[in-house]
Design a protein around this nucleic acid. Structure first.
Length: 151
DNA sequence: GCCAACGTTGGC
DNA sequence: GCCAACGTTGGC
């Protein structure tokens, strides 16, 4: 089983919306590295840290589970969507996304600043390539963060 | 709102 | 295939 970190801006899609909906399609990803993780590497049952980016403060706010393998992202064919991609063809879709299931909202989040203070987390992708919106997390890192939270 | 870091596009 | 120009992400 693998672990992941997935970012969302709370203004666009927050942990509270995720909690209310229980499930969501992780659409709108337009970065090949992030897409490839969803298409090729994620397995149903993998867990992920739900991260609020562009938030005050940014940080890890909850947990989700991969619920279904990647399917073509419907928003790429939707002309009204801001994620519409004119270069993507129906018979050869460019963008794929997984379905996620809500698992938990933490009572207390862990802020980015708190993560930066942890020596054990210094190699986390989050702290070294801050732009990647979907990233792998090692089991050690994942458990370390849950420990910080007392979860 | 600024800007550093990085990804993508497109001319050559 | 290089690289300049441009767009986006995301912390501050």
């Amino acid at each position: 089983m693998a672990y992941w970190l997935m970012k969302s801006e709370p203004d666009a899609y927050s942990i509270d919306q995720f909690k209310a909906e229980k499930k969501c399609l992780w659409d709108g990803i337009r970065n090949y590295q992030a897409r490839n993780f969803m298409m090729k590497d994620m397995k149903v049952g993998d867990e992920f840290l739900f991260y609020h980016s562009n938030a005050k403060p940014p940080g890890v706010v909850g947990l989700g589970v991969i619920n279904k393998p990647a399917v073509p992202d419907p928003s790429q064919f939707d002309k009204k969507s801001k994620y519409f991609d004119a270069k993507s063809q129906k018979d050869n879709p460019r963008w794929h996304c997984i379905e996620a299931k809500f698992k938990k909202k933490f009572k207390n989040m862990v802020s980015l600043n708190e993560l930066k203070e942890e020596k054990a987390l210094k190699d986390m992708v989050l702290l070294n390539n801050s732009r990647l919106s979907i990233q792998p997390v090692t089991e050690k890192e994942f458990k370390h963060i849950l420990n910080l939270l007392g979860e």
